[in-house]
Design a protein around this nucleic acid. Structure first.
Length: 437
RNA sequence: CGGGGUGUAGCUCAGCCUGGUAGAGCGUCGGCUUUGGGAGCCGAAAGUCGUAGGUUCGAAUCCUAUCACCCCGACCA
């Protein structure tokens, strides 16, 4: 992509309404535009990141055996009356009437919807276990939206739902999602810590929040320092195996949010206690028959008798993650994207647009890298070098490939790693080899 | 919802107290000179001062209402 033609409205100054760093940087980097309180448009650069995150979330769900479908954003009130949540949910749910005066709602979550689908189409115990998920926009009319996309009213969520006929089966599904979440957040470049959670209005008796540590996090969290050294990607990947040992390994050390905090247990850790700020990016629940029972979601058991389904639900805040990643990955000059979610891998900086030799080398590098499948944002604008460096640092692409007349005189270009700032001077051929490696 | 705050040019803000018909910097557009960490000079475009009433000869400025947005609290992916 050429910056001269890209719709990337970069701001030099920080808009007044943005208070936290991720919101400021997203606005300055031209990723989003606010539409109204807690509702945002995603501009091209922001959308690229959102899609990358979505892709990783999807891959890990699929790998764990979950199957993607897509449910509507607009739901009928009837289902929610069946589960009893239509009244319980309160004003946070956006209620709508259609032209026939039928009560509808914009879905804040989809337990009822998926339960309706499953009860209507699954007949036998042979139809389980299943984990179904979708990645869909939600609307919750939050009392106070804030922090940009971190707590929007409209947000993109990955929500999975598991169906089993036994509590044991449901726990196996829970463990699968637990492991999938560990892997997902690790791939996103985040240190996510599972913490025992309150089940809240969704209900149930087993629940974990996945919290990432960031100085600007919303809530106080406490955990054993062992979590900081664990690497989920080092785990084996056998979802058919018994995952309870993995679950136990990740839950036996102390980790809690403020609400679930046990001061005595924490104090017992002594120097091993880490106190930090955290952002909730995922939440998983095992809630048994909370919805299946009132909604009559059963399948025939081996003996022909109906069995009420055991369910769980598993959410990841996809759009929140864009902000959360920035909270965890930035410096004074701007965003520092983990490579897995960066909107482009390489920022090609032409230090002297209009200079035939520099232009020529940039075009060559741009063409060859692009042909090799590397995503390149080429700053071909007629701007001063300082301005281009500042823009690239703000955008936070992992590598800056800097091409200028001084270097070309010696036949070299420069690669700067955004994280850490290491610079390396090398030949154009070596640079291509390095960036396509 | 309770408490606090802000709405003036694309962005950041001044002007309001002490009414007299709108300014700066950045950005944008044009020109010249520059060119390895947000350049300099010259010129230009751009605002029914959130909206609606009211007071007044006259309102960005005073009064009333209303809307929007932001911050602190309870809630959440």
């Amino acid at each position: 992509m050429r910056l001269s033609t890209y719709f990337l409205p970069v701001l030099k100054e920080t808009p007044n309404e943005a208070q936290i760093v991720s919101h400021r940087l997203m606005l300055r980097a031209g990723m989003i535009r606010q539409s109204s309180a807690g509702i945002y448009s995603w501009l091209p650069l922001g959308l690229r990141v959102l899609r990358k995150i979505e892709g990783i979330v999807r891959e890990e769900q699929d790998r764990a055996g979950a199957q993607e479908l897509l449910m509507p954003t607009i739901q009928s009130a009837e289902l929610w009356q069946e589960s009893g949540r239509y009244d319980a949910y309160g004003p946070e749910m956006l209620r709508i009437r259609d032209r026939h005066d039928r009560e509808m709602l914009y879905g804040p979550t989809n337990e009822e919807q998926i339960t309706e689908i499953f009860r209507g189409l699954a007949r036998s115990y042979r139809d389980v276990p299943k984990i179904l998920y979708h990645i869909q926009w939600k609307f919750r009319d939050e009392i106070r939206p804030r922090f940009g996309v971190m707590r929007g009213r409209e947000f993109l969520m990955k929500d999975s739902y598991s169906f089993d006929t036994t509590a044991d089966g449901a726990r196996r599904a829970y463990y699968k999602m637990f492991v999938a979440y560990l892997r997902t957040f690790a791939r996103l470049g985040l240190k996510a810590i599972p913490m025992r959670a309150d089940t809240g209005p969704i209900g149930g008796d087993l629940s974990h929040e996945f919290i990432i540590l960031a100085e600007t996090g919303e809530s106080q969290v406490f955990c054993h320092k062992s979590f900081l050294e664990k690497d989920p990607l080092a785990l084996g990947l056998d979802y058919a195996a018994d995952l309870k040992p993995v679950f136990d390994d990740w839950t036996h050390d102390y980790a809690a949010t403020e609400e679930m905090h046990d001061a005595a247990k924490a104090a017992a850790l002594g120097d091993d206690l880490v106190t930090a700020r955290g952002i909730e990016v995922g939440h998983i629940f095992y809630f048994g028959t909370k919805y299946s029972k009132p909604m009559g979601a059963t399948v025939a058991g081996p003996d022909g008798q109906p069995v009420t389904l055991e369910m769980g639900s598993y959410g990841i805040g996809v759009s929140r993650l864009v902000g959360a990643i920035i909270e965890a990955c930035h410096d004074d000059n701007g965003i520092v994207w983990p490579e897995s979610v960066a909107p482009f891998k390489v920022g090609l900086v032409n230090l002297k647009s209009g200079d035939a030799e520099t232009d020529g080398m940039c075009e060559k590098l741009y063409a060859e890298l692009t042909a090799a499948g590397v995503e390149v944002l080429y700053d071909d604008r007629d701007e001063r070098a300082g301005s281009k460096f500042a823009t690239m640092d703000l955008l936070g692409l992992p590598y800056q490939l800097v091409v200028g007349p001084k270097g070309l005189k010696d036949g070299v270009v420069e690669i700067k790693a955004r994280a850490g700032g290491d610079r390396e001077t090398l030949s154009p051929e070596a640079a291509i080899a390095r960036l396509t490696a």
